[in-house]
Structure formats: structure tokens, C-alpha cells
Design a protein around this nucleic acid. Structure first.
Lengths: 210, 210
DNA sequence: GCAATGCAGTAACATTTGTTACAGAGTGCT
DNA sequence: AGCACTCTGTAACAAATGTTACTGCATTGC
């Protein structure tokens, strides 16, 4: 585990901190679709992502969903951070987007380290900043973009995150993430296909040129 | 100034910190409508709000606006925080919603204090958490609510922030905040009036029962 | 092979939101 | 009073999005 920590967090963290993470953290591998965080739960460990990707969703009281953003290697979940440090409930849901490797760090340590290691404190501040920016970007998208542009952006993000120009999703799944209906997504995808930007297959979408 | 600091931040901060804020901070009073932060600018001082309210907006490249949230007594601007600590550009615009009293703290101190005072570090973490939550609530509103509910929520927030059941705004101003058109707001307000929830006057809206 | 199931395509329609245009009422100024 | 200006109300229309219903195709399991 220590090698993977060094590779992914070595430029942020001092060696001592890496060693400490290695001692108290537990290594975890999860399959695609694994639910890491459910809304309303209290969180006792914090994930540091080694590889893979996690998608973070907002869920409203009716169970309607909306994709907030993706987390990647080197990221951590700011909501978990603030839940741990502030002892609040989770407001979000996190699901493994791909097969993902994580190191889980217990809450108590996190707080201790914000005093002990400057690099950890900065990492925490930086994570907050990034998540705040991403939340605001999500607001931009919903508020200023129409559904066709949001769909395009979604496809772009997916291909980037998964490093694959084919998006293995049904129209229904995309509709959930963007909080709209399957019919709307099918309609817009068809339009994109006619424009030569994607090729539609069963259960996947080839992104050609966007 | 020190009395006002003690009254508003005394429960968070140690006396020494209060004293230090008093020494290095500068007191500032701004009129309603004063632009505190403009997007793209670098920020060199951080505001602590003593009294009044500030509205924080997102602006897109076309100059379209969207209200993100209000800040009140005891709050600070998380975006300023992260801009200062991370030395990024501002992504938002902040305007005094009412006559507002502030203490402006220079950036250098802010960073120093995160190490020196535990209460300051926690205040910073807590501010981040609150802003992240509010950004996510804004996402909820835009994504899950229709315009009529968003308008209702806006009126509620305004009456609360200004502590006045009359909202002194033109329909056009509300339309800017909610990123829609004046006609839409007029239409929906008329509907609310017919439902007995508001009373419409020239340049103001009496909130009756929402 | 055949039934059951899930997925995608499409039409027809409803609703919500945005746009344009214009009228009238209130306000402030001279 | 007369004028310019801003604000609000309203109609008529356009566009975007959401809903329902039905079709056929591919896959799976029997």
C-alpha cells in the first residue's frame, strides 16, 4: 500500500505523514456500482482515492437524483471531510464509477493531522476549494446550459474519467444523472447522432467528435 | 470595533485572536448595492460580517447572473477564503444586500492564524462546510424545484435576511437573481397574489402568508 | 424455438419557461 | 399640466422539456 500512497500522494505529503497513513489507514478495493456513502449516514472513515473514479450525487426527498461531480485519483470527498470535522450527517451519495482503489482513514486521525501536518491541512483546504468550485460549476451547467449542452458535457466528462471514448450507459441511467427523462435523452442523443457526434449502440454510446 | 467583534465572534474566537483581529483588521461600512467582490479579481483582504447581509452571485461569460446565497452576521465568504489560501482568482461576485458593517482582514494573517489559533482553523473549516452545503442547496433548488417554488423560496429568504415582510425589489431585479425574465416573474407573482400569498405594490412586494 | 424482459425509437400531447410587443399606471421633473 | 421615464400587467406566441403510450429489436433463460 505504501508504494501506491507514495505514487499518488507523495508530492503533497511528507514521508512521515505517508507512513502514518499507511499505518492507520485500511486499503479497500470496490467494484463499479458500490455505494460508498449514503445520504443521512454518519461517516467514520475518509476515503483517499488511489485509482479509479467515484461519482457524487445529490438525492432529494423523493429519491430524485442529480450528478454533482466525479472524483479521481488524488481527490478526496469534501463532504466527508466536513462531515467528519464538523460531525454532520452526509448530504450526498457516492458510488464507485469504476473499479476503484481507496485508502480509508479514520476520522480521529484526520482532525489530529490538520494540526500536526501542514501539508495535510493544505490538502484539506485545497479539497474544499476544489469541491466548492465544482459545485459552482455544476450550478453553472444547470442554470445556464440547456439539456443538449449538459448532455454533451456529461459525455465529455465520462469519456475523460473512464479514459474510453465509449460510454457504457443506458439512456435511462444518463437520464437519472441529469435528472430528466429517458425519452428526452433518447431524443437528444438521436440529434447528436444525426449531427455525427456520436454513434448509438445497444447499451453504449460511441463518442466520435465532440 | 473591538466591542462589535466580541459581540459577534466572541463565542468562536479566543480573546487574543479577537485582539489581533482588532489590531490588523480595518473596519468598513458599505451601503446597499456596494460591490465587494467582482469576478476575476484577486482578493487581498477577507471580510468578516458584523451586521447586515451580502448576496453572493455567479456570473457567466454573457454577464447572466444567478444568486448563490446570502451571507449574514458571523459569516464569511468561503470563496474569498479559498482564493486567499489557494491564491486563486475570484469566481463570484458579492454585493451588499443591505447597509453592512465588516471587518477586513489581510490575507497574510489569515494563513498565519490557521496554524496559530485552533478556533480560527475551525472557523475556516466550518465556513467551508456551510458554503458547500449552501451551494448544494442552491443546486437542489435549481434542479428539483420549478420556478414558482424557487420564487417562493427567494421571497422567504429575502424577508428573513432583511427582517422585513416587505421585499423592496422590482420584478426585473428578482428575474436577474433567479436567472429568468421579468415577464415570468410578473406572471408568477400575480398567481401568488391571486392565491393570497403576497400583495403587489409598485417597487415592493408584501409577503403575507407563505 | 419461444416467451419474458429490458432497451431504444417515435409520435402526440401537456406543461413550463422564455420572448416580443404593447398598454396603462405611477413617479419625478419642469 | 405636460413630459419622460420606469414599472407592471397581459396577450400571443415560440421553444424547451416532460409525459404517456406504443412499437420493434436484442438478449436471456427456459
Amino acid at each position: 500500500m505504501i508504494e501506491e500512497l507514495k505514487d499518488n500522494y507523495g508530492h503533497f505529503f511528507e514521508n512521515e505523514l505517508i507512513e502514518e497513513i499507511n499505518q492507520v489507514g485500511s486499503f479497500k478495493e470496490v467494484e463499479e456500482g458500490f455505494e460508498l456513502i449514503r445520504p443521512g449516514s454518519y461517516i467514520k472513515t475518509m476515503p483517499l482515492i488511489i485509482s479509479g473514479a467515484i461519482k457524487v450525487l445529490r438525492e432529494d426527498s423523493d429519491g430524485d437524483e442529480l450528478l454533482l461531480y466525479f472524483l479521481e485519483r488524488g481527490d478526496t470527498c469534501a463532504m466527508t471531510l466536513s462531515c467528519c470535522l464538523g460531525h454532520h450527517k452526509s448530504e450526498i451519495k457516492a458510488i464507485a464509477e469504476t473499479y476503484t482503489k481507496l485508502v480509508m482513514v479514520p476520522v480521529e486521525k484526520m482532525e489530529e493531522w490538520t494540526t500536526k501536518y501542514k501539508s495535510w491541512k493544505n490538502f484539506v483546504f485545497d479539497s474544499y476549494h476544489k469541491r466548492l468550485i465544482e459545485a459552482i460549476e455544476t450550478i453553472d451547467n444547470i442554470a445556464f446550459l440547456k439539456m443538449d449542452d449538459r448532455l454533451l458535457k456529461y459525455l465529455k466528462d465520462k469519456t475523460k474519467i473512464n479514459n474510453d471514448h465509449v460510454v457504457y450507459n443506458t439512456h435511462q441511467q444518463i437520464a437519472y444523472d441529469l435528472h430528466t427523462s429517458r425519452v428526452v435523452i433518447s431524443r437528444l442523443l438521436k440529434k447528436l447522432e444525426n449531427e455525427g457526434k456520436v454513434k448509438l449502440n445497444r447499451n453504449n454510446i460511441e463518442v466520435i467528435n465532440i
